[in-house]
Design a protein around this nucleic acid. Structure first.
Lengths: 145, 145
DNA sequence: TTAACCTGTATTTATCTTGATTACATGTAT
DNA sequence: ATACATGTAATCAAGATAAATACAGGTTAA
């Protein structure tokens, strides 16, 4: 199992909007770069908008970042597109048997560990911004020219 | 999306095998505590056996840990039951468009970040052992008696 | 040896999530 | 009024999970 590509697509979208800041980033334009359909892009754009990361208006082509790219972390995107519910990255098996010492305590025992693991993952994502991703891409471009 | 309960069920199974070390931990016994069916338990037991974490023999009832519980980490279990493939916790969207600077570089740019995040998660799991989980459960039992 | 019981493994099925696709209502601009 | 964009819902196929069933093969005890 893996985390929905909505997350990485969201990062892709935000990065491209910033790179194309002087142009018009319509859902069709973005979908072309991601290689998916405009509807999915609009759906993700809706989530990013709701989270206050981009500005889009009905009827008007193009999206812009709502904040400086240096202030948007990958964690912001991760949470915006709702790929993993709070404290639910790991699934527990329901209704372990209460007559067994392990059964009646295992969930309380391991939940903090699982939360810590999830938090460690999120912390890494929180330390990287859209600006850094874009800068890295620009560098890669320069090295290959 | 969430990570299959095979992982947490695996932890449950190993912990109970150790707690019940003087008894016989058959698949039916374990399934009763987990509250699932013996077939699923045997399937997971097969994975744990393959990973060298438990000892089971065809036809002979009961499983035993193959190593000291202090030497089995949750990361060992996580890898044994194969819930997340190597470097594939996050999914990337296939075939971004090569004519776009973002499209042709985004995957190389964010893959190291995603790997780092996944590694951070795994590190937390690697720092907790079955022995610690069992000890915590025993403590919880004592506090509630 | 026979009967009872266990593990190992395959298959089937229902359920859920994802992502692709289509459709269309609503908003904007020329 | 026409053309085009966003917002959103509905549908669909594909893939994964876990429950359930079945049975082959191994072991033990009577």
């Amino acid at each position: 199992m893996s985390i929905s590509s909505r997350f990485t697509v969201g990062v892709h979208i935000l990065t491209l909007i910033e790179l194309n800041k002087d142009g018009i980033s319509s859902s069709e334009f973005l979908a072309g770069s991601v290689n998916t359909n405009p509807s999915l892009v609009r759906k993700i754009m809706g989530m990013l908008k709701k989270a206050g990361l981009i500005e889009v208006q009905p009827g008007i082509a193009g999206a812009k970042l709502a904040k400086e790219p240096a202030t948007i972390s990958l964690l912001d995107v991760y949470k915006a597109v709702d790929v993993v519910k709070e404290k639910e990255l790991f699934s527990l098996h329901d209704n372990p048997h209460p007559d067994c010492p392990v059964g009646r305590n295992i969930q309380d025992s391991i939940t903090p560990i699982l939360s810590a693991a999830q938090f460690a993952l999120e912390k890494v994502l929180g330390n990287v911004t859209i600006e850094e991703v874009l800068k890295d891409i620009v560098e890669k471009e320069n090295n290959n020219s």
